[in-house]
Amino acid sequence: MPLDWASLVGFVGTACIIGAYAYLTLHEAPNPFILHGTNLCGAALLTISLVVHTNWPSLVLEGFWAAIAIVGIAKALAKRKRTE
């Protein structure tokens, strides 16, 4: 079966999430904006794919993944504001 656009978008989202995890693992002091921003982009792209090719458990997982990334970005913004 050939890959359609939604599957390709999902693969890019998967690459983002795997890349963010690798970044977290390989860097001693990862930039939270890069880490959480990449995770958020990955979750958004996977959500687009999952809306087309519905898989409810995975869609719920991506919702939580995005929410955690948003909290991480908010915490990083608050920390940056406190240190300025």
Rank of each mutant, 00 (worst) to 15 (best):
V9S: 06
A74F: 11
G13E: 13
V9M: 11
L26E: 10
V52Q: 14
T38E: 02
K75T: 01
T54C: 01
I68R: 00
T38S: 08
F64H: 01
A15F: 12
V71A: 12
A22V: 15
W65M: 00
W5L: 15
I73Y: 01
K81M: 01
L45C: 10
V51C: 11
L61N: 12
P2R: 15
L50K: 03
E84C: 08
G19I: 06
A76I: 05
I48K: 04
R82Y: 02
L3C: 05
L26P: 00
P57N: 02
A29Q: 14
P2N: 13
L45D: 06
I68T: 05
L40S: 03
F11K: 11
A6K: 08
L24N: 14
T25S: 11
L50T: 04
L40G: 06
G37E: 02
S49A: 15
W5T: 10
C41Y: 01
N55P: 00
L8Y: 14
T25H: 09
P30K: 07
L24A: 15
N31L: 06
A67F: 12
L35K: 08
T38M: 14
L8C: 13
A78L: 10
A29N: 15
V52I: 13
C16Y: 11
A69F: 04
W65T: 08
I70T: 11
T25L: 09
I34M: 07
A74R: 07
A66Q: 05
G63F: 03
L24V: 07
V52F: 12
A69G: 09
T54R: 14
T83C: 02
F64G: 09
H53P: 02
R80C: 01
V9P: 08
L40A: 14
A43E: 02
L45S: 06
G72R: 07
I70Q: 03
P32H: 04
G19P: 05
T54K: 09
T14R: 04
V12D: 01
E28D: 13
K79P: 00
A69I: 03
D4L: 13
P30C: 08
L26H: 07
G72V: 13
Y23A: 09
G63D: 05
A67I: 04
G19R: 03
F11M: 09
C16Q: 05
V52T: 13
G13P: 11
T83H: 09
V9L: 13
G63K: 05
R80L: 14
F33W: 13
G63I: 04
A69M: 01
G42V: 08
L8M: 15
A43C: 07
A76V: 09
P57G: 04
L26S: 08
S49Y: 12
E28W: 00
V60R: 09
P2A: 09
H53S: 09
G42C: 06
H53K: 07
A43S: 11
G19D: 06
K79A: 14
V60T: 08
V60S: 07
G37K: 07
H27M: 12
F11T: 00
T54V: 06
Y21V: 06
L45V: 08
K75C: 01
G13C: 14
L59F: 12
T14A: 12
A20T: 08
H27K: 13
